[in-house]
Amino acid sequence: MMFETSRRRSALLCHSWQFKLCFVWGGELVSTLTSSILQMGLIWHLALTTGSSSLLSLASLAGFLPIALFGILAGALVDRLPLKRVLIGTDLFIAAVGAALTIASLAGSLPAWLILIALFLRAVGTSFYTPASQSLTPHLAPPEHLVRLSGVTQAIQSGGYILGAALAAVIYPVAGITAMIVLDVLGALFASLAVLAAQIDAGGLDEADRSLPFSNKVRELFSEISDGYKLTRGHRGLLALLWCGFVFAFAFSPLAALFPIMTL
Rank of each mutant, 00 (worst) to 15 (best):
T50F: 09
V247I: 11
L13G: 05
D209L: 11
T102M: 15
Q39Y: 10
L140A: 02
V124F: 07
L242P: 02
S215L: 14
P111N: 09
Y129G: 04
R8E: 14
L183V: 03
A112P: 08
S16W: 07
A99G: 15
G176P: 03
D206R: 03
G187C: 03
S52I: 14
R8G: 07
G108Y: 01
R80A: 08
S6D: 12
L238A: 00
L69N: 10
A240Y: 01
D206C: 04
R9D: 13
F3E: 11
L46S: 11
A96Q: 08
L136V: 06
A166C: 02
G89S: 06
L121I: 11
L55M: 15
R8C: 01
A96E: 07
R236M: 02
F70R: 10
F222L: 08
I162V: 12
A198V: 05
L13R: 14
V247D: 01
S150F: 10
R9A: 13
D184Q: 13
V30E: 05
A197G: 04
S16N: 07
S36Q: 15
P260T: 10
V152S: 10
A175E: 06
S226Q: 03
L119A: 04
P138D: 09
A132H: 08
S223L: 05
F248E: 12
D91M: 05
T232D: 00
L77N: 08
F70G: 06
H139R: 15
F222W: 09
S192P: 03
A99E: 05
L264V: 07
G234A: 00
T178R: 08
V30A: 12
V97W: 11
L13P: 02
L212Q: 12
K20E: 13
